[in-house]
Design a protein around this nucleic acid. Structure first.
Length: 466
RNA sequence: GGCGGCGUAGCCAAGUGGUAAGGCAGAGCUCUGCAAAAGCUUUAUUCAUCAGUUCGAUUCUGAUCGCCGCCUCCA
């Protein structure tokens, strides 16, 4: 039975969708002002593993994943570049989806953009103005936290002992607010400012938090099952989403909140000044495989901090290469007909281990251990020549089940060698048969230069690309 | 200043009141003409430090040291 640690209740809870077999889920996406970094992608990979496991469990999923394509930073950067915000964000949106696909992330059912849902945001703000949970000040609209007693229920924040501005991220806006904690729903813009929308309460642009409320309610309804995002969003972003949504609808917003912990790099916070800031693209340029990056990002349970190191990434490269090679060898192996029930039992046990681990708040570390145990047991059985054809079918089927969630093997590639290389392999085979090892080694070196690695096995020569 | 999390082998880490998963690296072996690759085996008397509770603690409690995060727009 699937259980999640719900940030809202701070409990491990059995997951029970609101509506039968349908699961409605919202994951906060990126602000598209730059290329997404590996920390961002840790959260998005978590969202993907969550998504895939819900589908694995047989749920019918509606997954909404937003793109924030308007905020102060985007407006300022666009202005500097002499572009509209759409012109400015377009290449980053394109790059984001490229990275997203490369990491094997499944596209969500709905990926709305903030700028295309301003009308829905305006509606919510109007409702909040009507019911007294919002007010106007100097042309901007603010949320009146004093009118929402539940404020703080997600983050459990204790305002009494807090030092305002202790984070060094004080709101730079100089608007008058009734209360320091009130936040902007709508910001007044100057008449000559190109980025702005007309509303009954004046021309302006939306605050950050309102977009997620508007898009979640539009596509998932006033109450839905799951809401996920990075821990840093817990406060204020998610807290404010709750205030806005519940303040407008009078109904519980998301039932379960999941927060993914941050990625550290070499034990430190990732920052540009520290020189340990990496985008996904940076790592690809360094020659790392997207599947290895994916593997590393979910190898630690989402709710624990993960320390990224290049030593570990090198390890992940090795690991996925080994896994992929394992599947290929298993497919190609010469096995006796029949079934080894001993192996069968072990292998079914590993599948059960996988599900138990994933059911336990998505313990991906333990789930991966089940996969590795399956690989080792199968290899041992093959080495002892006690693995049979029916075992193979079962094991490949189980790997497919793991893969539906992990997404690290990739499609089996049927690569074709060009005739020149094929001829060389054949010539080397002949040379070895004639014990002409000098020529044999020469060809091996030649092929190696061409990126082809040969393996001489009992069942003949295997090759693969470096 | 308020609040929370973490510290497990060279690296990444799981985990539990009853004696330490898994991956990478390392070592040994098998295979091989030799390699490479692959595979197998192996690798922490010990879980930051110091006290305490307990028959028993890495796991609970307290203190200390170190790291990370949130405290108004960062995943």
């Amino acid at each position: 039975m699937l259980k999640f640690h719900n940030t809202l209740t701070n409990n491990l809870e059995e997951f029970q969708p609101l509506d039968g077999n349908d699961v409605k889920m919202y994951v906060c996406g990126p602000t598209v002002w730059s290329f997404a970094h590996i920390g961002n992608f840790r959260t998005f990979v978590f969202g993907d593993v969550l998504r895939r496991y819900l589908k694995y469990k047989g749920y019918n999923l509606t997954h909404v994943f937003n793109l924030t394509d308007v905020d102060d930073r985007i407006i300022n950067e666009a202005k500097k570049a002499g572009k509209t915000i759409d012109e400015f964000t377009a290449p980053f949106i394109e790059a984001f989806w490229e990275d997203f696909d490369a990491l094997g992330l499944e596209r969500p059912e709905i990926a709305p953009r903030a700028t295309q849902h301003v009308a829905e945001m305006i509606q919510i703000i109007e409702t909040l103005l009507e019911n007294g949970r919002a007010y106007e000040s100097d042309g901007s609209i603010y949320y009146r936290i004093a009118a929402f007693p539940d404020y703080g229920k997600l983050s459990k924040i204790n305002f009494a002992g807090n030092v305002s501005g202790a984070s060094g991220r004080v709101d730079t806006d100089k608007y008058d607010k009734e209360n320091a904690n009130d936040f902007a729903l709508w910001k007044l813009v100057d008449a000559d400012e190109p980025t702005g929308w007309d509303a009954s309460f004046g021309r302006g642009r939306p605050g950050w938090h309102i977009e997620c409320s508007a898009m979640a309610i539009k596509y998932l309804g006033e109450t839905f099952d799951l809401h996920a995002g990075g821990v840093d969003l817990k406060f204020p972003h998610h807290e404010n989403e709750i205030a806005q949504s519940e303040g407008a609808t009078g109904k519980q917003f998301a039932k379960v909140w999941l927060h993914s912990e941050h990625l550290k790099v070499e034990g430190e916070t990732m920052s540009k000044t520290a020189g340990n800031y990496f985008t996904f693209r940076d790592l690809i340029e360094k020659g790392y495989a997207a599947t290895a990056i994916r593997y590393l990002l979910f190898s630690v349970p989402y709710h624990k901090q993960l320390n990224f190191t290049f030593e570990t990434l090198d390890g992940a490269e090795q690991t996925i290469a080994r896994l992929r090679d394992f599947r290929k060898r298993l497919q190609e192996a010469n096995l006796p007909d029949g079934i080894n029930t001993d192996l069968e039992g072990k292998v079914r046990g590993f599948l059960a281990d996988f599900e138990t681990a994933m059911d336990d708040n998505l313990n991906t570390s333990v789930a991966l251990a089940a996969l590795h145990n399956l690989v080792r047991e199968t290899n041992t059985a093959m080495a002892h020549e006690v693995a049979c054809t029916e075992d193979r079918s079962l094991i490949l089927h189980i790997i497919d089940k793991f893969e539906a969630v992990f997404g690290i093997f990739g499609e089996p590639q049927e690569e074709i060698l060009d005739s020149e290389i094929e001829n060389l392999i054949e010539e080397r085979r002949a040379a070895r048969r004639n014990r002409n090892f000098a020529r044999s080694d020469e060809i091996r070196d030649l092929l190696s230069e061409k990126g082809i690695v040969l393996e001489d096995t009992k069942d003949g020569v295997r090759w693969k690309r470096k």
